[in-house]
Design a protein around this nucleic acid. Sequence first.
RNA 1: GGAGAGAUGGCUGAGUGGUCGAAAGCGCUCCCCUGCUAAGGGAGUAAGGGCUAAUACCCCUUCGAGGGUUCGAAUCCCUCUCUCUCCGCCA
Length: 426
Amino acid sequence: MIDPKLLRQSTAQVATNLARRGFEFDGDAYLVLEERRKALQVETESLRSERNSNAKNIGKAKAQGEDIEPLLAAVKDLGDKLESRESALQEVQTALNDIELGLPNLLADDVPVGNSESDNTEVRRWGEPTEPGFTARDHIDLGESLGMLDFESASRISGARFSVMHGPLARLQRALIQFMLDTHTAEHGYQEVYVPYLVQAPALVGTGQLPKFEEDLFQTKSETPYYLIPTAEVPVTNLARDAILEADQLPSRFVAHTPCFRSEAGSYGQDTRGMIRQHQFEKVELVQFVEPGKSADALEELTGHAEVILQRLELPYRVVTLCSGDIGFGATKTYDIEVWLPGQQRYREISSCSNYNDYQARRMQARWRNPSTGRPELLHTLNGSGVAAGRALIAIMENYQEEDGSIRVPAVLQPYMGGLTKLSRG
RNA sequence: GGAGAGAUGGCUGAGUGGUCGAAAGCGCUCCCCUGCUAAGGGAGUAAGGGCUAAUACCCCUUCGAGGGUUCGAAUCCCUCUCUCUCCGCCA
């Protein structure tokens, strides 16, 4: 959520910033509502104040044994009047809140303007695109011919956009997850957390998936409705909900491995084959809570933590800054890390690292106590994949393939594979 | 799933219709006192919102959540959620 004060004091600037995203914010309509809110709130509160002092006087009079009938008469129609103002105020506040929850975050100044993925700007590259010296096969071809990737069973069980992995390949994904968790906890200062995979609506409102993107989520039919998490960002970031962290607790870094569930509504026709875009995938997620003012640096650092994983896996990648038209709803700035996939002859997203500044914190009331003011203030939240396990698995398969269709195991993962150095048929 | 108990400020815990945003204690902050330490004395110490140039006043809201009764609710009524204890079931 954007600071409501900023919204009403600098409406035009906000609208200009949001326009870079192609988001149209009707500032005038907002200000009309805001004026009504102010008038109604001032009126409502003064009526309440009047009622309170009357009630106090009645109490005093009664205690002294005086006749309270005239006082009661004087207060008679106050209740009705107050009630009508309260409900009018409530209505306006709900309308304002709906608008505010529907606004994307303000963009950082250095986010490039653009309309689509093609306008993202490359920041750096690491490694050279793998040249196997033969025609590279894609992960589907490789996995199926190894007998380790089984889309047929998956579709029989669950339909499209699921996969079944067998034996060493399934283990390789587990190895990857272990390796990533170990690296982030031992070397990057993250604390591992285990979190619920089913969450309730307020958690998703907090991180920004709701109310606007409900169609991307799976929901249970239970008596209390739950949503399956689309990312660990949701439960992990909500750890700070309604909290006031002390200054010495910041920065606070968490890492979690969870499955992620996405309905992928609207993605039909894209990446329909293979493991690139599925309803269920595994991800290791990094989340940070930091002091405001330090989040820009923290984003660089967090992105670096994700990059380390790819470097250790010796997977070529590049980092791009998402442009204003491609960046996510709640982010103020996002770096995508794209890994080279020889089977597709292009870079594909494997991690997305975002700074949300106080956008999520405001929705969640996630605060810290600023020692210089002594007051609770909103903190800043960041998150990034560190990295998506399913896609990392694809990247390993395609980048480590041999001409005979076998797949070498990256050196850093071999200890997690019981010393196995190669995935091969039979 | 069954039975019972409970939810109050950073913590413990009082408060069953009025001056209660809330006793007392602990903790914390500041001041005083005291060779040092220990002890002692005093003052302060919730959050959100409105108004505002203001983190100054003033006002509103909040005692698990939501509704209701009332001139007035932490206190009475209803619904829900969560926590704890015991039983059952289970990984």
